[in-house]
Nucleic acid binder design. Structure first.
Length: 804
RNA sequence: GCGAGAGUGGCGGAAUUGGCAGACGCGCUGGACUUAGGAUCCAGUACUACUAAAUAGUAUGGGGGUUCGAGUCCCCCCUCUCGCACCA
C-alpha cells in the first residue's frame, strides 16, 4: 500500500485551484463528453463508478491529445422515490432529494473525476424546470403536445399512468406491478410526427452500437400495408390495417379489439359482449399476451360486408387483437395467418385458401408465405407479391382502401399524477379551453411540500391544493384551473445535454452560439437499458429544436458507448433494493481511487457485463504499490536525453511498443488490454538493473504519461517528483518512436503439415529458400521430414510450413 | 416464435489480414525473508503421458466443411445473455 489518501486529497485540491476541468470559452478542437446522469436515490455504487471512470479516462486522454473539452455533470432529481419517501417515512421530498444529491456529490468529488462543476444542473431546480416547461409550451404551440382520451397504461403501485416505454413485459419498470388499462384523458407528445426522421436518421449514426440501433428500429416498428374499409350491415363503417392485402379474398370473419369504439357501442346493447370486454380489459397485458394462450372471443351477432365480394361475415370481439396496433380491428384470414387460423378452428369458422404454396406445407397451420393466387376471382394465377400492389390499387380505385404505413411507436404519454415533477404549464379555462401559461410567468412552481398531502388517491396531489390549482385564465382573465399533473421525468432528461451548454442562462433555454460551439455530443456513455426510452426522447427533442431553428444539428450524439452492467459474485445485477451493491465510498476508502479504477477497468472489456469479485481487485493495488515503491524513490529531477546506446537497448523498444499499444487500445475502448500492456512494461522495468541511468528515467517518465488517464492521482504525485510543477494533464500524450519499433529479426515459426515443430530466430526479409534452409537445419524438423517435402508455404517474416 | 450478441485453463479475460492458443491479472503449488503472514520477493502453473526435463498427443460448446494452416471463414446443432413478442 502507498499513501493514497494524502495523494488524492493533495491533487484534488490542486486540480480545483488551477481549474483543470473548467470548460474552455473558445474551443478550437472541441470534444463534448457526457455520461448518463444518475437518479438521486443517494448511493453511488460500483456500476456508476464504472460508468464515470470510462468518461474520466476519456477526458484525460483527449485532454492530453490536445482537445478542448466539455465534461458536465448533473442530477435526474425528479421522480417517484422522493414521493415514496414522503409517503412511507414522512420525509420532505425536496429535502430528501437535495440531501441525497449532497451525499452523492460528496462521493463523486472524492473520486476526483474531471467534471466541470460550474455547469452542474438539477432537474428539480426551478431554474431547470422552468425550461422543461418552456419546452412543453413550444411543443404545444407546434401542435405536438395534445390531450386525448385513450386506454393508457396504469400502474396500480405507482398510482400513475406510464408511457409504453416504461412497461417492461407487462410490468411497471419501477415497481414491477402488473400494468392495467384505464381509459383516461391524458397529455401526449406527438413523437409519431417525427417517426420517419427518427427511423431514417438511425442510418447516420455510424458510431452507435448496432444492437441499440436495431432495438430502436424494432421499437419504431415500421410496417407497410394497406388500410381497408369494411361496412357493417347496420351501415357503420370501420377500417382494418393489414400487411397482407393480397389475402383479401380469404377473409372469413372480423375481430375487434376490446378497446375499439365499435366494440364499446355494441356492448351497450349486448350483455355478453359487455362482459367479455370488461373481463378482457381487467386483465393485465402480461396475462393477455401469454404465448400459446387459447384464443378467446365473443360473437357480436353483427355481420360485416366484404368490400369486394359483398359477402357477409361474422364480427367478433377478441382479446388477441391489440387496441394499440393498427386500427385495433383485424380482418380474419385463417388460411394465411396462424392466429386467425386458431381463432377460426375454435369458433368453427370457414377457412378459405387464397394462396397456393409452391411446395407442400404442414397440415394444421396457416400458410403465411407467398405463392400463387387462387379463389381470388379475376386475379387467380397472379403471384401474391405482385398482387399486393395490384389489389391496393384496386381497393383505392373503388374507394374502399389505400396503401398505408403503420408504426409500433406510439405517442409519448408524458403526464404523471404525481407531485415531484415539473408541473405541466397549462391552464384549463371554461371559456377558452386549454391555454398555455405565458412564457413570462414561468416557471409554474411546485407548492411548498408542507402544504401537500402525498397520500396516493389516484390523482395528482396538486389537484387538492387549491392555491396551486386556482388561477386566472391568461386569455380572458376569468377564473381557471391549472393542470394538476406533472411531466414524466424522461422529459427532463430528454434535453439536459442542451442545458449543459449554457447552464446558467436566465434569459434563454440555451444560447445558439454555445450549441454551435459544442454540439453534437462527441461521446455519450451509458447503459443499454435506455435504448428505446431516453435515447429516442433525446433524439426527438433534438430534432424538434432543430426544426424550430434552435439547433443546427439533427442528432444529439455522435458516438454512443454502452458500458456493460456490474453484477455481484453470483451474476445478479447490483441494486440498492437487493442489497448486493458494492459501495464505492467503502471500496475507495480501502484501496484508494486509482486502485479501484484500475481494478474495474481491468475486470474486462468496457462493453461487457462483469461479475464483481473481491479477490480480483488485489492485482491493482499490487500494481500501483509497485509503481510507487520503484518510481518514487528513483525519480530524478531535470531533463533526460537518450543517446544512441540507450536506444539500442531492449527496454527502449518495449517502451515504444507499449506506447503504441496503449494509444491504440485507448482509442478503441480496450482499457483492460491497455492496462495489461502497462503491467508487462512494469515487469520489464523491474527487471532492468540500472535504476539510475537515462533509459530508466526516460522509461518511468513515459510510463507515467501512459498511466495518467487510468490512475491520475498517483501519476501526478510521481510526475511532480521529476521536478514538474504543473499537472501532467497539461502535457502532450507521448508519440512513439516509429524507428524504434522496427525489428531486424523475427522468430521464424517452423511448421510441418501445419503443426509447430520448431522456432528459429532469423533476419527479416529473407526469402523462401533461405527460410527453408534454416528450417531444415532444425533437429526436430529432420525427424518429421522422412521423405521429400511436397510443398513449402512461406509467409514472409512470420512462418514456414512444410507439407510432407 | 423473431432479432442481436456470446460460448477459450480452477477463475476474470488475451489473441491486426486465417499464421506460436492461453498475454495480463486472480487463484493455486513450491521456495526465500520473517516472531508472524491473508505483506513482500523468486520459481512454477491448459490437460494427458514420464519422477522430471526434452518430447509427443489432445484442447477454444458439439458435429461437419473450406484451407498448407481455423478460436478466427462457411453449414448444421446445443447452451447462455439481452431486446421484442398474439404487431395483423
Amino acid at each position: 500500500m502507498y499513501p493514497f489518501r494524502d495523494i488524492e486529497k493533495k491533487w484534488q485540491k490542486r486540480w480545483e485551484e488551477i481549474g483543470l476541468y473548467r470548460t474552455p470559452e473558445k474551443p478550437e478542437d472541441k470534444y463534448y463528453i457526457m455520461e448518463m446522469w444518475p437518479y438521486t436515490s443517494g448511493d453511488i455504487h460500483i456500476g456508476h463508478f464504472r460508468n464515470y471512470s470510462f468518461g474520466d479516462l476519456r477526458w484525460r486522454w483527449e485532454k492530453m491529445m490536445g482537445k478542448d473539452i466539455l465534461h458536465p455533470f448533473g442530477w435526474d432529481a425528479f421522480g417517484l422515490p422522493a414521493e415514496e419517501a414522503a409517503i412511507k417515512k414522512n420525509l420532505d421530498p425536496r429535502e430528501w432529494t437535495y440531501n441525497n444529491i449532497k451525499a452523492a456529490r460528496r462521493t463523486i468529488k472524492k473520486l476526483g473525476f474531471s467534471y466541470d462543476w460550474e455547469r452542474e444542473v438539477i432537474t428539480s431546480d426551478p431554474d431547470y424546470y422552468k425550461w422543461t416547461q418552456w419546452l412543453l409550451i413550444q411543443l404545444y404551440k407546434e401542435g405536438l403536445l395534445y390531450r386525448k382520451e385513450a386506454y393508457v397504461n396504469w400502474c396500480p403501485g405507482c398510482k400513475t399512468v406510464l408511457a409504453n416505454e416504461q412497461v417492461e413485459g407487462g410490468l411497471c419498470w419501477r415497481c414491477d406491478s402488473k400494468v392495467e388499462k384505464r381509459k383516461l384523458e391524458q397529455w401526449f407528445v406527438r413523437t409519431t410526427d417525427y417517426v420517419e426522421g427518427l427511423l431514417n436518421d438511425i442510418e447516420t449514426l455510424d458510431e452507435w452500437p448496432e444492437n441499440i440501433k436495431e432495438m430502436q428500429r424494432n421499437w419504431i416498428g415500421k410496417n407497410e400495408g394497406a388500410t381497408i374499409r369494411f361496412t357493417m350491415e347496420n351501415g357503420e363503417e370501420f377500417e382494418v390495417f393489414t400487411t397482407r392485402p393480397d389475402t383479401i379474398y380469404g377473409v372469413t370473419f372480423i375481430c375487434l379489439s376490446p378497446e375499439s369504439e365499435i366494440a364499446e357501442v355494441i356492448a351497450k346493447k349486448n350483455k355478453e359482449v359487455k362482459q367479455y370486454i370488461h373481463d378482457a380489459l381487467l386483465m393485465s397485458n402480461i396475462e393477455r399476451t401469454i404465448v400459446d394462450r387459447e384464443k378467446t372471443g365473443v360473437n357480436t351477432h353483427y355481420n360485416a360486408i366484404h368490400p369486394l365480394t359483398n359477402e357477409e361475415m361474422p364480427v367478433f370481439v377478441a382479446d388477441f387483437v391489440l387496441g394499440s396496433y393498427g386500427t385495433g380491428i383485424v380482418m380474419g384470414v385463417p388460411a394465411h395467418d396462424q392466429r386467425d387460423f386458431e381463432f377460426a378452428k375454435k369458433f368453427k369458422l370457414p377457412i378459405r385458401q387464397v394462396i397456393k404454396p409452391e411446395k407442400e406445407t404442414e397440415e394444421n397451420t396457416a400458410f403465411t408465405g407467398h405463392g400463387i393466387m387462387i379463389n381470388s376471382g379475376e386475379f387467380d394465377g397472379m403471384r401474391s407479391e405482385e398482387f399486393i400492389k395490384k389489389i391496393t390499387q384496386v381497393l383505392e380505385s373503388k374507394g374502399v382502401g389505400c396503401k398505408s404505413i403503420n408504426y409500433r411507436l406510439k405517442d409519448w404519454l408524458i403526464a404523471r399524477q404525481r407531485y415531484w415533477g415539473a408541473p405541466i404549464p397549462m391552464i384549463h379555462c371554461e371559456k377558452c379551453g386549454i391555454v398555455p401559461v405565458p412564457e413570462e410567468d414561468l416557471p409554474v412552481l411546485l407548492p411548498p411540500t408542507k402544504e401537500v398531502d402525498f397520500i396516493p388517491k389516484s390523482r395528482s396531489p396538486l389537484a387538492d391544493h387549491s392555491n396551486f390549482m386556482n388561477t386566472k385564465c391568461p386569455k380572458c382573465g376569468g377564473a381557471a384551473l391549472r393542470d394538476p399533473d406533472t411531466a414524466d421525468t424522461f422529459v427532463d432528461s430528454a434535453w439536459y445535454h442542451l442545458r449543459y451548454l449554457d447552464a446558467k442562462n436566465k434569459a434563454k433555454i440555451f444560447d445558439r452560439g454555445e450549441a454551435d460551439k459544442w454540439l453534437p455530443v462527441d461521446l455519450y456513455i451509458g447503459g443499454a437499458e435506455h435504448a428505446t426510452g431516453h435515447l429516442i426522447y433525446m433524439r426527438f427533442i433534438t430534432k424538434f429544436l432543430h426544426k424550430l431553428g434552435y439547433l443546427s444539428v439533427k442528432e444529439p450524439v455522435l458516438r454512443l458507448f454502452n458500458q456493460g452492467m456490474v453484477r455481484d459474485e453470483n451474476g445478479v445485477v447490483m441494486s440498492k433494493s437487493k442489497g448486493n451493491a458494492v459501495d464505492t465510498e467503502e471500496l475507495v476508502a480501502k484501496i484508494g481511487v486509482d486502485a479501484a479504477k484500475i481494478a474495474i477497468l481491468f475486470f474486462g472489456p468496457p462493453d461487457s457485463d462483469i461479475d464483481w469479485r473481491e479477490e480480483n481487485i488485489k492485482g491493482s493495488t499490487r500494481f500501483l504499490t509497485k509503481i510507487y515503491d520503484l518510481f518514487y524513490e528513483n525519480a530524478r529531477k531535470g531533463a533526460i536525453s537518450l543517446d544512441i546506446n540507450d536506444k539500442q537497448k531492449t527496454l527502449f523498444k518495449v517502451v515504444e511498443k507499449t506506447t503504441k499499444k496503449v494509444t491504440n487500445d485507448i482509442e478503441k475502448f480496450s482499457y483492460n488490454t491497455a492496462i495489461a500492456a502497462l503491467m508487462e512494461l512494469l515487469n520489464k522495468i523491474t527487471d532492468y538493473v540500472d535504476k539510475n541511468d537515462n533509459l530508466f528515467q526516460y522509461t518511468i517518465r513515459r510510463f507515467m504519461s501512459l498511466l495518467a488517464p487510468f490512475a491520475p492521482h498517483i501519476t501526478e504525485e510521481i510526475y511532480s517528483r521529476f521536478g514538474n510543477k504543473e499537472s501532467i494533464f497539461l502535457e502532450d500524450w507521448p508519440i512513439y518512436d516509429k524507428e524504434a519499433i522496427i525489428e531486424e529479426q523475427f522468430t521464424l515459426i517452423i511448421q510441418i503439415n501445419g503443426k509447430l515443430r520448431a522456432r528459429a530466430v532469423a533476419d527479416k526479409g529473407i526469402d523462401k529458400e533461405k527460410a527453408l534452409e534454416i528450417a531444415l537445419k532444425q533437429e526436430n524438423v529432420q525427424k518429421f521430414i522422412k521423405g521429400n517435402h511436397k510443398k513449402v508455404i512461406y509467409v514472409p517474416d512470420k512462418l514456414i510450413n512444410i507439407v510432407v
